[in-house]
Amino acid sequence: MIRSLLYVPAHSERFLAKAHQRGADAIILDLEDSVPPEHKSAARDGLAASVVLARSGGAKVFVRINPGSDDDARAACRARADGLLLPKVQRPETLVDLATLLEPVENECARPAMQFVALLESPGAVLNAAAIARAPRLLGLALGGEDLALTLGAQPTPAVLHLPKLLVHYAAKAQGLLSFGLLRSVADYADLDAIKMAVQEAQEHGFDGATCVHPGVVPHLNAGFLPSSEQLDWATRVLAKADHQQGSFSLDGRMVDAPIVARARSIASRARQDDS
């Protein structure tokens, strides 16, 4: 269960020092947009220490590489990051080629295969999401709202991002992948009331978690992407009655049949994952 993925600039000692204390399920060590060009090489060279520090609080660690950078990918692999966050993915062949590149490095390091989270950030990528979702090693998909809006010549408002985010979400779910995102931009992190509403909306749509650029958002993602107490109470009562019923039945004035029982089981399972 990955509810929160916190971006941390991989060149910043100040942010790296506290990243593991923020409570995020995953930390994204960023080599791309948040790192000035003159600091990118040093940030990559420091990944071995950065990954160990970021993981010390129990979080998974991903590295967002620069688009097409084999050096970034190899360095993240040797640093034993759990996976790569791949920006500006346009086609599934990119992930196939990257898996081929990493396999000898993984064998050399005697480490498990890295997982990928693909960021789709252009109209073409959104329209190609179903094909991208079938690529190897994918853990999940996400939409880069700011970059998409830029390529569209649009503003990254919730209204603009709603449809493309759902299209990428559907592509992920069709392949059984995790789907990360809120139906709004992650750049506006100060309006916590709006973020809480967006988390509730995303959870209702079935998103699994979301990225964030500020640690103050992490607790809201962690809480919001868990079943609420009301949802868990409903699921418990559905499952209790299902144990003594054949076929469909009524609960709280609503029909309950097989898909609804399955949803109740999913909610209960997600709550148990949090307890463990």
Rank of each mutant, 00 (worst) to 15 (best):
L226I: 04
L150F: 05
R270N: 01
E204G: 11
A149P: 03
V51K: 02
R237H: 14
L192K: 07
R134C: 09
A42Y: 00
H244N: 12
R270G: 00
R272G: 00
L86S: 03
D33L: 01
A210S: 15
R134M: 13
C109V: 05
L251S: 07
I2P: 00
L167M: 13
D30M: 04
E103L: 14
R184N: 08
T211V: 02
Y170I: 03
V51P: 07
E13L: 09
D147W: 04
H11G: 00
V217P: 06
M197Q: 14
S179M: 10
L5K: 05
P9N: 07
G68I: 05
R14I: 10
P219Y: 08
P259N: 09
M255L: 14
A133F: 12
L84P: 01
L239G: 06
T151K: 12
P158H: 02
T100V: 12
E13T: 11
P36M: 09
K60R: 14
V117N: 06
A187H: 13
D30T: 03
P164H: 10
R3C: 01
A131M: 11
L161V: 03
L182A: 06
V63L: 06
A154K: 10
M114V: 11
S250Q: 11
L192C: 01
V105P: 08
A262N: 10
E38N: 10
A194H: 02
A264N: 09
Q231S: 11
V217F: 06
Q21E: 15
M255V: 10
Q246I: 09
A149Q: 05
D82S: 07
Y189S: 13
L127D: 14
L16M: 03
Q246K: 11
D70S: 15
K241W: 00
L127G: 05
L31A: 06
V63Y: 07
F225D: 02
F116M: 11
V51Q: 04
R134N: 08
G253W: 08
D72E: 12
S266T: 14
L163C: 00
D82T: 07
V63S: 07
L101V: 11
G124Q: 15
V52N: 00
A210K: 04
G216T: 09
S4F: 06
D30V: 04
I267S: 07
A42N: 08
V51C: 04
D188A: 15
V213A: 02
V8W: 04
L84D: 03
V51W: 01
Q90M: 09
P37N: 14
V256F: 08
E32M: 02
L167H: 07
P123D: 13
Q155E: 15
A24S: 14
G209P: 00
A268E: 12
P87W: 06
G216A: 11
E108K: 14
E32I: 04
A17Y: 01
G224N: 08
V61W: 05
D33K: 03
L5F: 05
G176I: 12
Q115R: 15
F15K: 00
L85N: 01
D33E: 12
E230A: 15
A133C: 10
Q175T: 07
P156V: 03
R265Y: 01
L102S: 10
P36H: 09
R3D: 05
D82H: 15
A125Q: 11
G124K: 14
R111E: 13
N128W: 10
Q246G: 00
A190R: 15
